[in-house]
Simulated assay, not measured.
Amino acid sequence: MHHHLALLTLALLGLAAAPGVQAGNLVVNGSFESGFDGWTRGGGNLRNPASVITYNSSATYPTGAYGEPVRPSDAPTDSPDAAGARAAYFVDDLAVNERLSQIVFLEAGSYQIGFSAYLPRNGFNNRGDATFSGSIAGMMLANFAASTAPAQSWQAFSGTTMVATPGNYAIEFVFNTNLAPSKDVVIDQVYIIPISTAAAVAEPASLALFAAGLLGLGVASRRRRRPSEA
């Protein structure tokens, strides 16, 4: 009997260790619903630093994209966070390495990473160009000139990265412009998700062990009842 109870216990432990439901986003305030809480801003020559704008707003900077309503992100994404009501807006002219960054502690393992980006039409029509890059946990996901990207279209940038050593890893977005006025970039739904917690079904080996434990417990229970039935 004790053997079968031990087997059942091992099976239950195996199920507990199996992948569960998708984990939450490890990025703090990845959809900018709390402004820039959790984020660090920096850079040189900033007269109009990055701001947080409200979707579908006709307001000017800093709460809107200079009168152009920006629709919420509709790019296909693995982010567990909704686009919400707000997004981060890079708009400064003659910006020199304007940065938006965050440090996240990651355990060893595999992660899904990504974010979404958008170019407002009024900024896209400006004569000055902009360059933009986005990297997460050491992986460059985007590095483009705004003049080569589609205007008024949300684009999803994503990837999978392997972390070999537990530690602090950076999320970093860098924005540069060369004239006044120059092109703009909006970003939203920045995420890091542990892949090991993304599956909702237990591993087959764990299910088999669990079934064996239940079967063994049933057999042992019947054997104990037989003397009383005689």
Rank of each mutant, 00 (worst) to 15 (best):
A85S: 10
F90H: 07
S58A: 13
P72Y: 04
P76I: 09
G84T: 04
A82L: 14
S73F: 09
A50P: 03
P62F: 01
A59L: 13
T54A: 14
D81E: 11
Y66P: 00
P76L: 08
D78V: 07
A87T: 10
P76C: 05
S57F: 01
I53A: 02
A50W: 00
A50R: 10
P80S: 11
A59T: 11
S51C: 14
F90N: 06
P72E: 07
S57D: 06
Y66N: 15
A50I: 14
G67S: 04
I53D: 04
R47Q: 14
A50N: 07
I53W: 04
G84K: 01
G67M: 04
P49T: 01
S51I: 11
A50S: 15
Y66F: 15
A85H: 03
N48C: 08
S57C: 03
P62W: 01
R47F: 14
T54C: 06
T54V: 15
A75V: 13
P80E: 12
V70A: 07
D81Y: 02
E68N: 05
G67P: 02
P62K: 03
E68S: 05
F90D: 06
G67Y: 04
S73D: 15
G64T: 10
D81A: 08
Y66C: 02
P49W: 00
P72F: 05
I53K: 03
G67N: 06
A83L: 03
P80W: 13
A87C: 08
D78A: 15
T63L: 15
V52Y: 10
A65M: 00
T54E: 15
L46M: 00
T77Y: 10
R47E: 09
Y55A: 07
T54F: 05
E68W: 03
Y61P: 07
P69L: 03
P76E: 07
P69Y: 02
V52K: 10
N48K: 15
Y61H: 08
R71L: 14
D81P: 09
A82S: 14
D81V: 05
P49D: 02
A87V: 11
S79Q: 04
V70D: 07
S51E: 08
Y66V: 08
Y55T: 12
A82K: 13
I53G: 11
